[in-house]
């Protein structure tokens, strides 16, 4: 459970390996010694990752209940139910909607912030701090603050729209979290504020590796800033963008926390996402067996995206 929606997939490469080229030479003779080193981790891995994977598959063929009543084998019943379960597909659809809504601002805003900060280097520390700090906050702190700002009557956001901008009628305040039309967007806005800092740092790091002479020579050719952006910077950031999008995709498929805390999946299930529906079926509806089948569908989807990601990494490894 170390990776949740906002946790970085990898905290690696704080330093580069001193020598990346030397191929690992192993102690030639096979011995059991090495096994002792990997055994503790492997044991935990089997108990808390391999075993639940198998157990979940088994449960998906049973009517196991959270209430602890006797379990019986029901064959493919859960699976046929999953494929006909509109609510499950709606939840997947909402997950996809969230992914699409949030991916664009999470890429574009991160890029804009990184471009700005890359040029405003004298304020670097302050800016990095301002944009990245929200990312390390616990989700409930983030949602508490935003629920408070989204309050229809007297919340900061509606007050701004009414009294500062004058674009909202105070008799008809926007019900950010409880209107079907705005609930998903509200969660998206909160999520962007919360997590864009991570992508921003990725972009900033990538920008700072672009050698200056690339720009210098194009400046001499008379290219202006805008032309340099499209001609040099963006193409060089392609790989980072691909990475950001894939990471985003995986994180979005696992989305749960913000919806659970901000909207509870409502209004009218408009923000009910895949993990939330699994939670509802399994823990609120007591149907461990059915929820296991649902989990497996999501499992496979995330697996597919992860394989894409894996190949992306693997390619440049090789």
């Amino acid at each position: 459970m170390t990776t949740e929606t906002k946790t970085p997939r990898a905290g690696d490469a704080a330093g580069r390996p001193p020598s990346t080229t030397a191929p690992p030479t192993r102690e030639k003779p096979k011995s059991w010694t090495g096994l002792w080193f990997v055994l503790p981790f492997t044991a935990m891995y089997v108990l808390f990752l391999v075993w639940p994977t198998i157990l979940g598959l088994y449960y998906s063929f049973t009517d196991r209940s959270l209430t602890g009543r006797p379990t019986s084998w029901i064959g493919l019943d859960n699976w046929t139910e999953v494929f006909g379960d509109e609510r499950a597909w709606d939840a997947l659809w909402n997950t996809a909607v969230f992914t699409v809504y949030s991916a664009v601002p999470l890429v574009v805003i991160a890029l804009v912030l990184a471009l700005l900060v890359n040029r405003a280097r004298k304020m670097g520390w302050f800016l990095r701090m301002a944009f990245f700090a929200p990312f390390i906050l616990p989700v409930s702190v983030v949602t508490m603050i935003w629920i408070w700002m989204y309050q229809p009557d007297g919340g900061l956001i509606n007050d701004f729209l009414q009294n500062t901008l004058g674009v909202q009628d105070s008799a008809e305040p926007t019900l950010w979290l409880s209107d079907e039309g705005t609930a998903m967007w509200s969660v998206v806005i909160t999520t962007v504020w919360w997590t864009v800092g991570f992508n921003f740092l990725l972009y900033l790091a990538a920008l700072q590796t672009i050698p200056k002479d690339v720009y210098e020579s194009s400046s001499m050719d008379g290219a202006n800033w805008w032309q340099q952006l499209w001609g040099i910077t963006l193409p060089l950031l392609k790989r980072t963008t691909a990475l950001v999008i894939v990471l985003q995709l995986i994180a979005s498929l696992r989305i749960f926390d913000q919806m659970y805390l901000m909207t509870g999946g409502g209004p009218n299930r408009a923000t009910e996402v895949a993990i939330h529906y699994i939670y509802i079926s399994g823990f609120e509806g007591y149907r461990i067996g059915y929820a296991s089948a649902l989990s497996y569908v999501l499992f496979v989807l995330i697996m597919i995206v992860s394989i894409v990601q894996f190949r992306l990494f693997a390619r440049k490894e090789g």
Binding site: M1, T2, T3, E4, V38, F41, T42, Y45, L47, F48, L49, V50, W51, P52, T53, L55, G56, Y59, I250, L253, R254, F256, I275, I278, Y279, G282, F283, I288, A291, S292, S295, Y296, L298, F299, I302, M303, S306, I307, F310
Partner: peptide, 24 residues
Amino acid sequence: FIFAAIIAGLMVPPQALIIPLFDI
């Protein structure tokens, strides 16, 4: 074999395991 199995684990979403994990 063990290393490959662990690498495969990179792709397993822990959130999709909550149901059996809770049970265990």
